[in-house]
Amino acid sequence: MASMAERPDLKVDLGRGLHLRSPVIVASGTFGYGFDAPQVDRAALGAIVSKGTTLRPHEGNAPIRIAETPSGMLNAIGLQNPGVDHVAHVYAPQWATWDLPVIVNVAGDSVDEYVAVARRLNGVPGVAGLELNISCPNVQSGLQFGVDPVLAAEVTHAVRAVTELPLIVKLTPNVTDIVAVARAVEDAGADAVSAINTYVGMAIDVRRRRPIISRGSGGLSGAAIKPLALHAVWQLAAEVHIPVVGVGGIMTPGDALEFLLAGATAVQLGTVNYVRPQAAAEIHDGIAAYMVQHGLTDMRALPIRSVSVLTHV
């Protein structure tokens, strides 16, 4: 019979009753609405975060939408989604039959739109939580909420007022002080933050003399951004009192462990889902093996906050 040390408990708590069986979550925009990617082992996952969902359907941006860059990829999908009514009517009833929580990523270009989407999803069976996308760099007005602590707090507070669901706010890294935005959304009622969304970047086709992405810029994801994301999580975990979900360039079990040691309560996998559908299971098992190896029985024992580092150079 396996001892506790051999079967570590990977459960995590993101607040307001959102208990996950695993700290491994698939990130918004990399797993659709959970109906594709049959190659991914669902048993390894703690939750799915849906594609960004808006009040009305969006067709998305004109091609070209993606480009590979060194150890990363740019995307400017443009929030292509079927709209919240379709999600609530068609997808959520199916999610309600799953043993895997689905968190709906909510996007909008006004406080009213965020509120309308959140209101529509409140109390809908199958919807386990909301992740507020205040950082999508692809729709012009989307950026504004996430870069300003006051606006970020305003939209968080407004959504908080109309939903009882666990509320995660996904932070943009395209700011001077991500901690200030995180504190503001914590005070406004967020149950957790996820950090980080993509960095704005671009690539130019020198032969055709124009940006590769049709919109010019896109969001950079993948291994290229991992050290940047990790630093954001390290800062946030020390400064906010709500769970931090680490996301950005996680490709391997070792990457995920870095985020968990830095203070993340859970991690989200994004770009790696496109490349290695088996990564979720490998990362889940790698975390479990690490726990065993280090004699840890609880995920809360992982962060290394007590380690002293030079914070100013």
Partner: peptide
Amino acid sequence: ETPMGCGIGTCLGCAAPRAAGGY
């Protein structure tokens, strides 16, 4: 042939223009 990310319908990166509108 279009630029492609995942190949399985999740990244929405390989959009091509549809005659009926959208992609």
